[in-house]
Amino acid sequence: MVAPINLQLEFGGGAELLFDGVKKHHVTLPSQSDPWDIKHLLVWIKDNLLKERSELFIQGDTVRPGILVLVNDADWELMGELDYKLQDQDNIVFISTLHGG
């Protein structure tokens, strides 16, 4: 079993509107047998934070196109994307890309 971990989740670029307009969430992921990765985190977010219209945030087992995921201020692509193993106190940001000008 792995110990519970604390994360700061942030939503921006309009993605926060799916979470009652709240940008910052301090969350604790419970103890489980396998280490937490982002794939598990997305399922946890869908079950615990997303109230409705989850298809506007998650498609299949990943985020919908147009949302950039950051792990401690780096593009998640540099960190292993869905397989990144979450560490206690990580800051995970989900930001919707903007198109207005």
Partner: peptide
Amino acid sequence: ASALRWEGQ
């Protein structure tokens, strides 16, 4: 660059 609401990239 892009902007909407209170945010920019």
